[in-house]
Design a binder for these strands. Sequence first.
RNA 1: CGGGGCAUAGCGCAGCCUGGUAGCGCAUCUGCUUUGGGAGCAGAGGGUCGCAGGUUCGAAUCCUGCUGCCCCGACCA
Length: 440
Amino acid sequence: MHLSRYFLPILRETPKEAEIVSHRLMLRAGMVRQEGAGIYAWLPLGLKVLDKISAIVREEQNRSGAVELLMPTIQSADLWRESGRYDAYGKEMLRIKDRHERDMLFGPTNEEMITEIFRASVRSYKQLPLNLYHIQWKFRDEVRPRFGTMRSREFLMKDAYSFDLDKEGARHSYNKMFVAYLRTFARLGLKSIPMRAESGPIGGDMSHEFIILASTGESEVFCHKDYLDYAVPGEETDFDDAAGLQATVDKWTALYAATSEMHDAAAYEAVPEASRVSARGIEVGHIFYFGTKYSEPMGAVVASPDGSQKPVHMGSYGIGPSRLAAAIIEASHDEAGIIWPDAIAPFNVAILNLKAGDGATDAACATLERELTAKGLEVLVDDTDERPGAKFATADLIGLPWQVIVGPKGLTDGKVEVKRRASGERISLPLADVAQHIGG
RNA sequence: CGGGGCAUAGCGCAGCCUGGUAGCGCAUCUGCUUUGGGAGCAGAGGGUCGCAGGUUCGAAUCCUGCUGCCCCGACCA
């Protein structure tokens, strides 16, 4: 992609409404544009990031055995009357009427609908366990949307719903998601810590929030520092090995970790002082088991082995990709701009043509673009007629992992400079070595 | 939902108190000179001053109502 042909509306100054760093940087880097309170348009650069985050989320859901579908954003109120939540949900739900004056709503979540889909087709325990998920826009009419896409009213959410015959099965399903989440966040370049969360009316130990530490985080968290060094389960994880998964979950829940709402000062004091971490965190995922809360009122039952009809045990599991985009920036930036982890960078490499229009630099950039693209890398060539300083600033702002700086000065020796955005490290390389250096 | 604030060119702001032809910086366009960390000079374009009423000879400015947005707090992927 050539920057002169792209749509990247960079802001040199910070819009005054943006208070936190991720919001400022997303606006400045031309990733999003606010269209209303808590409502954002995703511009090309932001959309690429959102898509990459979603792709990783999707891969890890699939790996764990979950099955993707896609439910609508608009739902009928009748469905919600069945569960009793049409009245219970309150003003956070955006209620609308269609032309026939029927009560509709823009879905804030999909428990009712997935339960409806399930009960329509599943009759036997033999079809269990089942985990269905989708990645779809949600709307929650928050009293006070803020922090850009971190707390927006319209947001993208991956929500998965598991169905099992009994609680033990549900625990296995829960553990699958637990491990899938650890892997997902790690792949996104984040150190996530599962923290015991409010588990609602069901009680028990099956509700966790996945928190990443960031100084600008919304909640105060307390945990054992060893969590930060735990290796996440690898690709070889066998999600059908219930005992193995349980052991992993046990390991990841053995040490102290809690948000301020669940904080137990006495238990925290028991952690050796040198191992205590008190910090701020951002919730990037939430998983919980809720038993038969929806299956019972909505009649989602299956035949059990003894022939009796049993309401299924369910759990739901959420990750917000649109929030993650902001959370990742909160966790990875500096004064100059965003520092994208390789896995979700909108482009892998920026080629800065310091003298666009010059035959030698143009030719070198074209060669580099071809070679890097051939390595499977996505390349953004800054071929605008900006001055070098402006190009450096733009490249740092949008935070692509690699910058290849091509200028007349270096080219007289046949060399270009390669800069790693994260470390700031620059090395001078012969043109011919660049693709190998970056693309391996 | 309680409390506070803002609304003037794409972005950041001044002007309002004390009413009298709407300004600055950046950005944009043209030309020349520049070109390795957000260039310089010269010129140009762009705003029914959030909306609706009112006061007045005259309103960005004073008054009333409305709308939108932001911040702090209680709630949330």
